[in-house]
Amino acid sequence: TGIVNVSSSLNVRSSASTSSKVIGSLSGNTKVTIVGEEGAFYKIEYKGSHGYVAKEYI
Score class of each variant (00 low, 15 high):
V35K: 06
V32N: 01
K55F: 03
G28V: 12
A40L: 13
I3Y: 14
V6P: 08
H50G: 04
E38D: 12
S8H: 15
K55P: 00
G36T: 05
S49T: 12
T33C: 09
K47C: 09
R13G: 06
H50K: 05
K21G: 08
G24D: 03
N5D: 07
V35M: 10
E38W: 08
S49D: 09
V22A: 06
L26E: 01
N5C: 10
Y46L: 04
I58L: 06
G39F: 05
T33V: 14
I34H: 00
Y46T: 02
S19M: 12
K21C: 08
T30M: 11
T18A: 10
V32F: 04
N11S: 14
G2R: 04
N29R: 07
V35N: 04
G2P: 05
I58A: 02
K21S: 12
I23V: 07
E38N: 07
A40Y: 09
V35Y: 07
K55T: 04
F41T: 02
K43G: 02
N5T: 11
V6T: 12
I34V: 06
R13P: 01
V32R: 00
S15H: 14
S49H: 10
E37P: 03
E45R: 09
L26R: 01
S17K: 07
T18Q: 11
S17Q: 08
H50M: 10
V4F: 04
G2T: 06
S7N: 10
I44N: 00
S19D: 15
S7L: 11
T30E: 11
N29E: 08
S19Q: 15
K31F: 11
F41M: 04
I44Q: 00
A40G: 14
V53G: 02
F41E: 01
G28I: 11
S17D: 12
S20L: 01
L26Q: 02
G39A: 07
I3E: 06
I34E: 00
G48V: 04
S9K: 13
S17L: 08
T1L: 12
T30F: 07
E45Y: 08
K21T: 13
S27V: 14
V32T: 02
T30Q: 12
K43R: 11
V22I: 14
S20F: 07
T1N: 11
V12N: 00
E56W: 08
T33D: 07
G28N: 14
S14A: 14
I44H: 00
Y46P: 00
N11P: 14
T33Q: 10
S27G: 12
K31G: 06
K21E: 12
T1P: 09
I34M: 04
V53F: 01
T33Y: 10
G51E: 01
Y46E: 01
S14L: 13
G36M: 05
S17P: 01
I58R: 01
N11M: 14
I3Q: 08
S14Q: 15
R13V: 14
L26Y: 02
S49E: 11
A54P: 14
V6M: 09
E45M: 13
A40E: 15
S49M: 14
I34N: 00
S27P: 15
G48H: 07
I58T: 03
I3D: 04
K47Y: 10
Y57W: 11
A40W: 08
K47N: 11
L10R: 03
K21L: 12
T1W: 14
V35H: 05
E45P: 05
V35T: 07
Y52M: 02
S25Q: 15
S8C: 11
V32C: 05
R13A: 06
K55M: 08
A16Q: 03
T33G: 04
N11A: 14
S49C: 08
A40M: 13
T30D: 14
I3F: 15
V32M: 04
H50Y: 15
N29C: 10
V32P: 02
S20Q: 02
A40N: 13
V4N: 03
I44S: 00
I34R: 01
E38F: 09
A40D: 15
I58G: 02
T33L: 08
N29Y: 12
T1R: 05
Y46W: 14
S14T: 09
S8Y: 14
K47R: 13
R13I: 08
G28E: 10
